[in-house]
C-alpha cells in the first residue's frame, strides 16, 4: 500500500496489519535536515488524509537521524492521540539511535518496543 498519491519519491513502506499501520523507512540515512520535511509530511498524511490512527514505526533501517526528525515524531504523536489512536516504535537496531531517545527523554514519551510482535500485541 502506498503512503499517498503524492508525486514525491516514496520514503515510506506502509502495510496495514489489522487496525495498526506498520511503517518502514525506505532508506537508512534519510532522516537528515534536508529530507525530514518530506518524510514528516508523508507521516502526517497517513493520519490527516488516510485516516490511520494506530501507527507502528519500524526503525530497523534507520542509521541516522537528528533533532529535526524528533520534532516530527512529537507532532505525529500528538496527531494520533488527537485521532484517538496510538504511536509506537520498534526494532531500533542502532545503539546511537536508541541513545538519542534516551538522552532527549523521549523514551518516556513514546512507546518503544523491541520488535514488531511485541509492539503489535500492545495495541
Amino acid at each position: 500500500m502506498s503512503a499517498g498519491a503524492a508525486p514525491k519519491r516514496r520514503r515510506l513502506e506502509v502495510e496495514d496489519i489489522g487496525d495498526v499501520t506498520f511503517v518502514r523507512f525506505t532508506d537508512s540515512k534519510i532522516l537528515d535536515e534536508a529530507n525530514v520535511q518530506v518524510i514528516g509530511e508523508q507521516l502526517f498524511s497517513l493520519v490527516d488524509n488516510h485516516g490511520r490512527k494506530n501507527l507502528l514505526l519500524d526503525f530497523s533501517r534507520v542509521e541516522y537521524m537528528t533533532s529535526a526528525f524528533l520534532g516530527k515524531l512529537v507532532t505525529l504523536n500528538k496527531k494520533v492521540q488527537q485521532a484517538g489512536g496510538r504511536l509506537a516504535l520498534c526494532n531500533i537496531a542502532h545503539k546511537e539511535i536508541f541513545d538519542i531517545f534516551v538522552i532527549t527523554g523521549l523514551k518516556r514519551l513514546f512507546n518503544i518496543y523491541r520488535d514488531e510482535q511485541e509492539a503489535l500485541q500492545s495495541f
Binding site: 533533532s67 512529537v74 507532532t75 538519542i100 532527549t104 527523554g105 514519551l109
Partner: peptide, 21 residues
C-alpha cells in the same frame, strides 16, 4: 531544558542537548 516534563512535547529545542552529548 528539553528533557523537562513540561517541554517533552515541544517539537524543537533538542539540538544543543544532542551536540553536548
Amino acid at each position: 531544558d528539553p528533557t523537562a516534563e513540561e517541554n517533552l512535547e515541544r517539537p524543537s529545542g533538542r539540538g544543543i542537548l544532542l551536540m553536548r552529548h
